[in-house]
Structures are given as C-alpha cells and as structure tokens.
Design a protein around this nucleic acid. Structure first.
Length: 431
RNA sequence: UCCGCGAUAGCUCAAUGGUGGAGCAUUCGGCUGUUAACCGAAGGGUUGCAAGUUCGAGUCUUGCUCGCGGAGCCA
C-alpha cells in the first residue's frame, strides 16, 4: 500500500493508500465517523462506516483525541461533500501516539493563551499558511539577489558597539574584552563586503532592546540588507522597487492557496509593480498639512503620519531626502541641500508602515569623522569602518527590509507576532 | 518609560453590593453524510495576589503581579 501526502491526493483517486498525520477535527453521526487528518501538506476527511470496519477500529475513531498521531488507510474518493473535494473511504485506523485534552480547541481563544501555546498554535491552519508564505518570501528575496549578481556576506551578531549610536542594545559580558552587544544591523559590515565584492547582501536576525510595544515591533527580528558599490540614491530606489515587485509578485503567484486561507484581498498586492511613486520628505510634509496634521519640518514621520501618506497611493511609496538630523550618522547629505540626507524609506500601503529604510552612504572620511564626533560615538570602534573611506572610497548605497513587517503586510495580519514562529517581545520570551 | 483597558470553570465570556451562570472542551447516552455537526445528561470554581470599607464584596477603595491596545523609538 502506498504511503502518500495529502497534497498528492488527487493523483490517487480510486487507489488504496495510507496517510500518516494528526487528528485535526472529528465529527460523528451514529454509524458514521468523520476524522479530519492533517499532515502538514493539507487536510483530509476520512470517512468510517460502522459496517465497513472492525468494531475496534470504529470505537477508536470515536474516542481518539484531537492531535493524536495516527495512520489512516483507505480508498481515495472524489466527493463534493468533502472539504477540498476529496476524501478517504477509510477501512483502517492506527494510533501512533494518543493525545488527550489538547488545549487549543476549534473555538475562539485569546491572544495571551495562544501565545503561551505558540508551539502548538503553529499547527493551526492559519499559522501553517503564514509560515509557508514567510518561507516563500525569504526564498524570493534570496532568489532575487542571487540571480542579480549579489553575494551573501554574513555579518556578526556579537558586535563591539552600536552601529548607529541611537538604539538601545542588548549587552552581554565578553570574556576579558568588556561588553559585547547584539547587532541592530549588519549594514556597516555589508559596506565592507560591498568594497570587496561589489554587490552583497546580509540576511540575519537583529535585536533592539527598546521597550517598543506596538503591533509593528519585536525585540528580535530578521532583516535583509543589500549594499552596492557605485550606487547612488536613485540607483538604490531603482533596486528597491524592482526587488519589492519581484518578491510580492512571486509570492502572490506561488502562495495563492495560503493567502486565500488567510482571507487576504490580493488585488491590492497585484498593484505592486514598477514604477513605485517617489516623493520627497518636503512633499510628504505638504500631504500631511493638507490632511490637517500640524507637522513641523524636521521631525521624523510617526506611524499615523505614515498611514496618511501611504493612503494617497495604491502601492508602496518611497519617501526620500529626510532631514539629516533625524537620520543615522553614516547617511550622505544631499550636496544640493545639506539639511537633508540622501535617505529613502518605503512605506507599505494599508497602514503597514515602513518596511524598507535605506540611503546613499557618506563616502568622505572627513565628514564621517565630524559626524562620529557629533554623535559622541567611540571613535576607536569605528576605525575599521573609516578604513573603507581611507582606501579607495566610492559612492555606495543600500537598504534594509524588515522580514516580519513584510510578512505581516503580504498576509494582511494585524500584528507582527504571528509572522515569526516564536516571537520575542518586551513582555514575552517563551516558549 | 508614559497613557488607556483588562484578569471569573481547561478555553471564550455573563452575573443591579445580596444563593457565581452559559457555550465550547471533557465523560456518558442518541443519531448512516457531518462541515467549529446536532440532541439529551453529568462532572468541573481559593472570581490574579494582598489588605481595606461593609451585616454582606466577583462587584467599591488602595497597593502589587501579569497581560492587552496605543505613544515614543525603529525595520
């Protein structure tokens, strides 16, 4: 008898097969028992008629607990009444390991309870769909860069000091060398990589110890950061929009079934095509003022401000040339207006906010030295970074894309905690 | 860190300062096509912790703990 996966079911209509999985739901109607099996690839209704199986098997299919691991055998049938259109006319049922009192029942649960049982919640159909979309997004990201001449350069997670000097970082003792900090960005190391290999990207976890408590923040999240030698701000925006179009179009094509389970309206995602609108910070401020926001030039955009701006467009919008005061020390100033930095943020539609932040980098040694002093950063820790300017400095640019915010946007979720298998938040480090 | 809200059965929630309930889950019984099946019955409680007001507190007051939503910061 052939052992198959539920996803391959349609190829075996009329054949006798065996499927291993877990009991997802069950229902009964007198001499008829329905066991819904899940195996990670899909769901299958197995139908047990009292007259077709032994009394022992019939009793087992009634008493077996939710999430028991089992093997069902029978004949694959096409049936309109079955969810998914196929079912198993079953004749045998083996319990591998019995489960009783599975805590997540097919009813409503609160978020605290579900997060406490995250290791089990992952088995639910929506969570499975989200993880499959997340995986496809990550694969699309890697495919895009790998197919466009980029080299993956891993950056360290333990670092000697803050990359940008602004965020609060997690720290740990590092033998006799004092404190080490968990990285908040691989960017400075990506710049070193770009000077060696031209086009590079880093992809890894990043950490922020800020006590952020919103639907858009985790203390541990994943970020992909491309960095390209000889690119300026415009090249950087060209790259960002081509990249976003590729990722979104690939995912809505390859994960249509999962997005349907998540009830995602993909018509809004279909709009993610080049060219994406590009507006300056000055124009963004004008939009805010036209919408009744009292906004002072020089401030950073808040979450509500971003939503107002992105609501003006039917696809992600790039906002460039922010006041240099609110941006990191390594961003290059606009030679035509030194008050603004050659930075760009990409704001996702539907209130999902900033998914990309990037810039052209400062390539002048003297200006960087000035900024490091202004920001009171430890010069010693940045000597290696300054060497990149001492030895053949060139214009270069890059950006970072937050994986969880991107997953949340594409899946249409209202909180990033569901976009990563085990979220780390200010008040949660378990399971 | 600040502002707001909350904590009652395994879960989701009710309960005017006066005998703590329902649905689901669990156990038992019924049903030959169920779709979070349905129908009948049973078991299940230190009302987050500590103190106070009161004849009497799940309910009012204070403190604490934990969580949720938002702000700031950021991806």
């Amino acid at each position: 008898m052939k052992k198959i996966s539920i996803s391959d079911l349609s190829k075996y209509v009329g054949e006798e097969i065996s499927i291993s999985g877990w009991v997802y739901h069950k229902r009964s109607s007198g001499k008829l028992h329905f066991v819904v099996l899940r195996d990670g690839t899909g769901y299958l209704q197995c139908v047990y008629f009292k007259n077709n199986v032994s009394p022992e098997v019939f009793e087992l299919t009634e008493s077996v607990g939710q999430e028991s691991s089992v093997i069902c055998k029978g004949t694959v049938k096409e049936d309109k009444r079955a969810p998914g259109g196929f079912e198993l006319d079953a004749n045998d049922f083996t319990v591998i390991t019995a489960a009783t009192d599975y805590p997540i029942t097919p009813k409503d649960h609160g978020i605290e309870f579900l997060m406490d049982h995250r290791h089990l919640w992952l088995r639910s159909s929506k969570q499975v769909a989200i993880l499959r979309v997340r995986h496809r997004i990550i694969k699309a990201i890697r495919d895009f860069f790998d197919g466009n001449g980029f080299t993956l350069v891993d950056s360290p997670i333990l670092t000697p000091s803050a990359c940008e000097g602004t965020s609060t970082l997690f720290s740990t003792d590092y033998f006799d060398l004092g404190k080490a900090y968990l990285t908040q960005s691989g960017q400075l190391y990506a710049e070193a990589g770009a000077m060696a290999l031209g086009k590079v990207y880093t992809f890894g976890p990043t950490f922020r110890a800020e006590k952020s408590k919103t639907r858009r923040h985790l203390t541990e999240f994943w970020m992909v950061e491309p960095e390209v030698a000889f690119n300026d701000l415009n090249d950087n925006m060209d790259l960002a929009e081509e990249f976003l179009e590729y990722v979104v179009q690939t995912v809505i094509r390859e994960r249509e079934a999962e997005l349907k389970i998540l009830e995602r309206d993909i018509t809004k995602l279909q709009n993610v095509k080049r060219p994406l609108p590009r507006i300056s910070y000055d124009e963004a401020v004008e939009i805010l003022r036209k919408n009744g926001v009292e906004f002072e030039w020089g401030n950073d955009l808040g979450g509500g401000d971003e939503t107002i701006i992105s609501n003006q467009f039917d696809r992600p919008v790039m906002v460039h040339r922010y006041p240099s005061e609110v941006k990191a020390f390594y961003m290059k100033r606009d030679p035509e207006n030194p008050k603004v930095a050659l930075a760009v943020d990409v704001l996702a539609p539907e209130g999902y906010g900033e998914i990309i932040g990037g810039s052209q980098r400062e390539d002048s040694l003297d200006l960087l030295l000035e900024r490091i002093a202004q920001h009171n950063l430890p010069l010693e820790d940045f000597q290696w970074y300054l060497d990149l300017r001492r030895f053949g400095s060139v214009p270069h640019a890059g950006f970072g894309l937050g994986i969880e915010r991107t997953v949340g946007w594409i899946c249409g979720l209202d909180h990033v905690r569901e976009t990563i298998p085990f979220a780390r938040m200010i008040y949660r480090k378990t399971p």
